[in-house]
């Protein structure tokens, strides 16, 4: 089931002197099983947008529809138990390592499922699976989460959400502050999750990652959605009116284009696919 935003507006501190419009008339669809990236400048409403997805924030106007769940500030329309939506839509916040609090890594990951009435043993079993999935080794399970490094902590936090087995996974800048290797591991993990049928929504500033991993991109600017496209449409649409940084692969493609070498942009995702596309082109000559 896709996610639908219908005329969604959101204002922080609504009807107070501190009003602050964060979303303005958002209409969008996020496809099922897609890998969607949400990009845009800081403060354009990306984080607010994703918080509507599991009812942490209720839109001041309009509604968000996720499967049978309706997120709306209208009580009649709104689904009664939004807590169940939290199990379906897992949100990993920016600097999610700050949410860890249990004594051991394993307990912390098991904390989520126990909130949804899963027995302790069962929760620990799920937690073990999820920790292995995110690449945390077994010897870390009984350690305190505060002994881990930043990247490890973040993976534990992601495992904590993964343990709820959500069908939609939302991540707010999961790669911020990670080293290149950590970034790559993180994105590969998300890709694997996506391939196993989870809808993945990622907020990011790294356009290289967007080009490599995303199937869809939503560009936001000044509380509005200005463009919904696939990465190749976005980055090879040369006019740069969204003031996004161009991925280096796209730059190469554009330069080649200027030199008269036309490549099939649809298949180009990373260095490897670029190289094979150039090779294919040469062979055809």
């Amino acid at each position: 089931m896709p996610i639908n935003f219908k005329d969604v507006s959101f204002t922080y501190s609504y009807k107070t002197p501190f009003e602050n419009v964060a979303l303005n008339d958002i209409n969008a669809t996020i496809l099922d099983k897609s890998f969607t990236c949400i990009v845009g400048k800081t403060g354009c409403g990306k984080s607010t947008l994703i918080q509507q997805l599991n009812g942490l924030l209720l839109p001041t106007k309009g509604e968000v529809i996720v499967d049978e769940f309706v997120v709306s500030s209208n009580r009649k329309r709104r689904t009664k138990k939004l807590a169940n939506l939290r199990k379906k839509v897992g949100i990993v916040f920016q600097f999610s390592e700050n949410q860890l609090f249990e004594e051991t890594v394993l307990d912390d990951v098991a904390f989520g499922p126990t909130n949804f009435k899963v027995s302790k043993e069962e929760a620990r079993k799920i937690a073990k699976e999820c920790l292995l999935k995110v690449g945390i080794k077994e010897e870390y399970f009984e350690k305190s989460p505060f002994e881990l490094s930043g990247g490890e902590k973040r993976r534990v936090a992601i495992a904590g959400i993964l343990a709820l087995s959500p069908s939609i996974m939302v991540l707010d800048e999961p790669t911020a502050g990670l080293d290149p290797e950590g970034t790559k591991e993180m994105m590969e993990l998300l890709k694997k999750m996506n391939e196993s049928g989870t809808t993945v929504i990622v907020v990011t500033h790294d356009m290289n990652l967007v080009l490599t991993y995303a199937t869809n991109v939503i560009v936001m600017s000044d509380s509005r959605i200005v463009k919904e496209a696939t990465p190749d449409e976005l980055f090879l649409d040369n006019d740069e009116k969204y003031s996004l940084e161009t991925p280096y692969i796209a730059k190469v493609v554009q330069e080649l284009d200027k030199k008269g070498i036309k490549l099939d942009t649809k298949v180009i995702k990373d260095v490897k696919s670029l190289a094979s596309e150039i090779a294919r082109k040469r062979k055809n000559k």
């Binding site: 942490l56 807590a83 939290r86 199990k87 949100i91 916040f93 700050n98 909130n115 959400i161 709820l164």
Partner: peptide, 13 residues
Amino acid sequence: DRIMKAQSSRGVD
């Protein structure tokens, strides 16, 4: 607010 939201996402009420 942020931590409350993060924990609510993990099912804390």
